[in-house]
Design a protein around this nucleic acid. Sequence first.
DNA 1: ATAATTAAATACCATTCGGTAACAAAATGT
DNA 2: ACATTTTGTTACCGAATGGTATTTAATTAT
Lengths: 186, 186
Amino acid sequence: MKNDDVLGVAMAAYWQGDPADVSVNAITQMAGISKPSLYREFGSEDGLKLAVLDRYAAQVLSEMFVILQGGHGLRATLDAMIDFASDDPRMETGCLFYKMRAGKHRLGPLTRARVEQIDAAGQAAYAAFLQSRRDAGEGIGGLPVDVAAEYLGEQIALAITRRAAGEDAARIRVMLTLALSVLERP
Amino acid sequence: MKNDDVLGVAMAAYWQGDPADVSVNAITQMAGISKPSLYREFGSEDGLKLAVLDRYAAQVLSEMFVILQGGHGLRATLDAMIDFASDDPRMETGCLFYKMRAGKHRLGPLTRARVEQIDAAGQAAYAAFLQSRRDAGEGIGGLPVDVAAEYLGEQIALAITRRAAGEDAARIRVMLTLALSVLERP
DNA sequence: ATAATTAAATACCATTCGGTAACAAAATGT
DNA sequence: ACATTTTGTTACCGAATGGTATTTAATTAT
């Protein structure tokens, strides 16, 4: 087991459970390496979590940005987001980013800063998407773009978080579709 | 400082922050009592949290049930719920019950069982309310009652949780009103 | 082959956690 | 007045945490 494998093991562990409930001891054990090796590679628990989050962002969150920037219509894009949140098998145990965001106060300064940065980027991406749809003449519920963007982001987060809690995927789809239907009004 | 004061101190501490981040040591210190005193009174950390949750349910959650069982119309009841979630000063730091539910896996068996029990009672109350409104001829978005009940409960929880995260109250009101507007359709 | 350097592991540190045993003080019953 | 029970405190326990100093093993350089 080496470098990248350790990151993979850590990401899986954080992602599967709650990042705050997985100790560095547990990770070294799972990865089959010693604790000083991990600390030489990542500096601290905070450094490890930051590296994991960056990997997760590049590997998973990027897909959400791709969907938003695909240039498709409001309906098609929202449907794609609903599909991702409700049915993508990788979201079965929730979203690592949302888990970290929910327990932000338990993170070290490096990871917390990155969480806030990614959160802001997400909000901006939602807003840019909605602005482009409004410019294209599609109604977004008559809402200010930033409000609609935050609403959209929070509903997606809620759906994925409930999925991590073991809620039935079909039911989540129904409720998320319902929540987002308000964005498809004039 | 005695018995009930300790409960009050513990409730305030758990409510203000995150129940999982407040140690029994911290509580004894805040309450100005020794640790064995606390353990003699409540048996364990789990017992203390259970007592706090019961007190919170009787003192705060009961108001939500009162609103739901007030026998008023759909619009009036939802507005009252929106008021409570968005503007009641006691929800400024969030809802202790929702905080415990969010960190359910970190609770002891007694408290976790009570959380699940209260959660089920809440769901039932939402469902009974919606069923009564539908029976009275008011539309609830054409949804099955249990789905609408869960949707309503989750949107309330989301609003209050966001409030604990420091989000602006007016903005939360807008978003919650938006989310619940789907229940006022035929 | 041997010396210098890098990598890894063992064994440890201080702190905090929930929880308790042993003991002192105060109230209560007789 | 004395014995008993309750109430509270100090001081401790074992386990787990994040993090390191020290030592051993494996490279690499000469």
